[in-house]
Simulated assay, not measured.
Amino acid sequence: MSILEDYYNGVLIPIENFGNNEFSGYQDLSERVQEREKELLETLSKDQINLYKKIKNDRSDMLHLELERMFVYAFRMGFFFTADLYSE
């Protein structure tokens, strides 16, 4: 089977093999964000916490849409680069 057939048939699932961010400082930044978020939530009322959670969910949805757009763009660019290489 080709890689495209594996992808189409669900044998290849790129996100499973994507791994974790190994970029220097990422883990520290992630922990710092979590700590600040915890500090903030401790100061908010119940209504403010609910509003904060809605905003956080909306931002997550926005990020998902943006990542999908970026993936499609990068995939298309990869195809165009490959086509260009084989055209020479």
Rank of each mutant, 00 (worst) to 15 (best):
M1F: 06
M1V: 07
M1A: 10
S2N: 12
S2K: 03
L4S: 12
E5K: 14
E5N: 09
E5Q: 13
D6H: 12
Y7H: 02
Y8R: 07
Y8G: 00
Y8L: 14
N9S: 13
G10F: 01
G10D: 06
G10P: 06
V11M: 01
V11R: 14
V11P: 00
L12N: 09
I13M: 06
P14S: 05
N17W: 06
F18E: 15
F18C: 12
G19F: 10
N20S: 08
N20D: 08
E22T: 11
F23K: 07
S24Q: 04
S24N: 03
G25K: 03
Y26P: 02
Q27M: 10
D28R: 02
L29I: 03
L29R: 03
S30A: 14
E31V: 03
E31I: 06
E31M: 05
E31Y: 08
E31Q: 14
R32H: 10
V33E: 12
Q34P: 00
E35H: 06
E35L: 15
R36A: 09
R36L: 14
E39G: 00
E39Y: 03
E42D: 12
E42I: 00
L44R: 01
S45E: 09
K46V: 10
K46G: 05
I49R: 13
N50I: 02
N50A: 03
N50T: 05
N50L: 11
L51Y: 08
L51I: 02
Y52K: 09
Y52F: 15
K54R: 11
K54F: 09
I55L: 15
I55K: 05
I55P: 01
I55S: 11
K56W: 10
D58N: 12
R59L: 15
R59S: 09
R59G: 12
D61I: 13
D61F: 11
L63P: 00
H64R: 13
H64I: 12
H64K: 15
L65N: 12
E66Q: 14
E66F: 07
L67E: 15
E68I: 05
E68H: 08
M70H: 06
F71M: 12
F71I: 04
V72D: 11
V72P: 00
A74Q: 10
R76S: 07
R76D: 06
M77E: 10
M77L: 13
G78C: 11
F79R: 01
F79K: 02
F80S: 08
F81V: 15
T82D: 09
D84F: 14
S87C: 05
S87L: 11
S87E: 15
E88W: 07
